[in-house]
Write a protein that binds this DNA or RNA. Structure first.
Lengths: 343, 343
DNA sequence: TTGAAAGCGCTAACAG
DNA sequence: CTGTTAGCGCTTTCAA
């Protein structure tokens, strides 16, 4: 207990007494509801201010089954891809007077389950799950127990959850198109986690785009790995050992690409002259890599913003079946083309 | 409302009926409390499993005045310095069965106030505030209303909040010592936000270390600015315009240093040959800057871990007056010394 | 326009 | 060992 604890909470009853009215009247004033005379209302407001009354959201939630809280699940805020999603979601939530319950699930399916259950126990009003790894069945079962849900970067049954996602297949095709255009033919792919939905879509994009160009990516040149800098470093070594003739490295995300760049520098392999490198996500530091990284950009802030907006619509019973798909945008930098002379 | 809503929540009473006992007995079983026969206990457990009962933490909180929730305030998760703090704090919280209420306050004092009040309304069990900007009086008043509190990167009255912080003055002296040792004499300082406590401590470190070496940093060479890459870019230009003879740029943090490096590269100024650059924090990407950045490292994960551990102690009434100070560690990289030949 | 009563789901305190 | 009673702070329902 805090030594300076001034926690003697003032309740509706205290205010009611002070104002000489019933708790119900105070409740009406607090919630800006009609049915209170102007004089009484003023008197109650005065009492509220005097006593420093603040409504107990826990008590309100018990009765009203609403907590003004949203559960947000992200794989890992430590991955620069996610913080902006959190910010986008939070800004919308705060504008509605809601607060965020955040959980990092560290690419771990069981932590996803635990988080969803913890949210349920706390009676959150809605849930947003980013890049969930759970199987569709388990996820639907868990989300179905919530009042409203939105999934980011994956589809879902519209009745269970809305979805906001990036068109990863399109994005990857853009990237491959660019690489093919600059003459790359021998691809190495660092594919990211096997259970990642986004990873599968991106692989699909690679396959389709190369196939259309009559080019084949050998299965041995596609390697799964953790979506981290370290993962990128080790996978790059493996890939290069297997096939030294690779002329383009397609990385699951910018972190992996960062690892690839570090390793290539260590090996003395020139980027982009000998090997072109592309990432995905355009994290804030991608432009500062050496060389700056060609990648796909999408506003993750908007992703979070849209997800939360959609969640509020679903919480109000509107907007069912909505599925927002954002198109990422190709950002060409020096990792796939020789540096232009400075302006 | 979710179309697949299976939200008919099962309550203690449902379980009690199913098991043919009173709610109190079920409550005892749920909370692993003594005073229930083994046979009954088993029967109740069975009923719980059958019905899929999960305790309503909101209801429990109303009675028990505990929500198993911790409020965490960070300036901005989008700043790579903070996510690891969140993770460190979260890992400890989850191990105790607690969940995190997270709020980004975006370097905005009024959002700090709003967050602290929102936490109070939700009856969180404790609060951790990272790098708060509020004045000591307002902060103490707000924190005093919470059961327990810990401040990160700033001191507080021990009765009001515990504190976990880095020794910024020491850290900055280390950095300055290093710069002086390699021969830098003409310093430019990008000092960070004026209301930041950490910023003031670091300035103190600069002053003391340079003074001991009989060197003076002109007041005009110390410029406040936002703790961002963009802030670093613009402030670097201003500083260089004022004093082109600067031979070392001391940056508030690594983001600012990143901006400085970008600007220096654009201006064609060689780092470290003409100007040495140092950052602060050792964010994960600091080693990947061009050139890699000399900076002070501290495990922000540990900062978060310690803060949450201390908070739990304070919640239990122990550990009052504790003030943990972590020493950062100098990491010398190429931004202050010519690159060594590759191993 | 106002208020009294009941109860959300749980637990503390006290019976039996 | 088990159950009953009361009430946390609020809102819904119904009555005045």
């Amino acid at each position: 207990m805090n030594a300076f604890d001034t926690t003697e909470k003032v309740t509706l009853a205290d205010v009611a007494e002070q104002a000489g009215v019933s708790v119900m009247t105070v409740s009406r004033v607090v919630n800006d509801r009609p049915g209170v005379g102007e004089r009484t209302r003023t008197r109650v407001r005065h009492a509220i201010a005097t006593l420093g009354y603040r409504p107990n959201i826990v008590a309100r939630g018990l009765k009203a089954h609403r907590s003004r809280t949203i559960g947000l699940i992200v794989p890992d805020v430590t991955n620069p891809y996610f913080p902006a999603i959190v910010r986008g979601a939070e800004d919308v939530a705060i504008a509605h007077g809601f607060t965020l319950l955040l959980t990092n699930v560290i690419e771990d399916v069981e932590r996803e389950v635990a988080a969803l259950e913890a949210f349920e126990d706390r009676r959150v009003d809605g849930v947003i799950a980013c890049s969930p790894r759970l199987s569709a069945e388990r996820l639907d079962a868990l989300l179905g127990r919530h009042h409203a849900a939105v999934i980011v970067n994956r589809r879902s049954k519209p009745g269970v959850a809305g979805s906001v996602r990036l068109d990863h297949e399109y994005g990857m095709r853009q990237l491959m198109h660019h690489l093919l255009a600059i003459g790359c033919r021998r691809f190495g792919v660092i594919a990211g986690p096997v259970d990642s939905h986004a990873a599968r879509e991106r692989i699909l994009g690679i396959d389709r785009e190369t196939r259309e160009h009559g080019i084949d990516v050998p299965a041995a040149n596609v390697l799964a790995g953790p979506p981290t800098v370290e993962g990128g470093e080790s996978t790059t070594r493996t890939l290069l050992a297997r096939d030294p003739s690779i002329d383009a490295l397609v990385c699951f995300n910018d972190l992996v690409a960062a690892g690839a760049l570090v390793t290539l520098a260590e090996l003395g392999i020139a980027v982009p002259e000998r090997i072109a490198v592309v990432g995905y996500d355009d994290i804030p530091f991608a432009r500062m890599f050496t060389p700056p990284l060609t990648t796909m950009r999408a506003s993750t802030y908007d992703l979070g913003r849209h997800a939360m907006t959609m969640l509020f619509e679903r919480m109000e019973g509107r907007g069912h079946g909505v599925d927002i798909v954002l198109q990422p945008e190709l950002v060409v930098r020096a990792s796939t083309r020789a540096a232009a002379p400075p302006a």
